[in-house]
């Protein structure tokens, strides 16, 4: 585990068992207008966060097809985050209402399939909520470290 990461871990998280140096890969889908802005402010505000997140920017959370999520898992993501504007704030009127529907299906399929609930999460984060974004990534990273690598990770992928 490299230093810049351990610096950012809360006391509670630091007490958790460490999977010697293993850093999970977290794919975070962010919408252009809110949660991507949140990710940006997390960086600008210098909130500490692990380097585990791979951010994929989409114009609206409503653009996130369940297929994208499956693909991330099949390619080796240890967790996938679906994020967007708060309900009512979507810049395309109701894109995130549709996200909620798709997510309901995704969540159920993932759960039935046996993918732990920590590995797929939904969160609404506005452009100004940099700290919320950073905390979210940090929390998920810790949860996944406890779980270990995803069972869907292809052989040979770390």
């Amino acid at each position: 585990m490299n230093d810049s990461i351990s610096d950012g871990i809360s006391a509670e998280a630091a007490a958790a068992p460490k999977t010697d140096g293993w850093e999970p890969k977290i794919v975070a889908f962010c919408c252009n207008w809110c949660s991507y802005g949140g990710a940006d402010s997390a960086g600008m505000g210098r909130f500490q966060q692990p380097a585990s997140a791979r951010i994929i920017r989409v114009m609206c959370s409503g653009r996130i097809d369940p297929l994208h999520v499956f693909n991330a898992f099949l390619e080796g993501a240890d967790a996938v985050l679906v994020t967007g504007c708060h309900i009512g704030d979507c810049h395309y009127v109701n894109g995130n209402d549709k996200t909620k529907i798709k997510y309901k299906y995704l969540e159920n399929v993932a759960h039935e399939l046996g993918i732990e609930k920590e590995r797929l999460q939904l969160n609404w984060i506005s452009a100004s909520e940099g700290e919320k974004f950073a905390n979210f990534i940090r929390d998920v990273t810790e949860q996944i470290k406890k779980l270990g690598p995803s069972p869907l990770k292809p052989a040979g992928v770390v």
């Binding site: 297929l67 039935e112 869907l152 292809p154």
Partner: peptide, 19 residues
């Protein structure tokens, strides 16, 4: 030819047929 642990074909169908 992918090396995926689960068939994308079936994953998509599991979801599309869920309802």
């Amino acid at each position: 030819g992918d090396a995926y642990k689960m068939s994308m074909y079936h994953l998509v169908r599991f979801l599309h047929l869920a309802d």
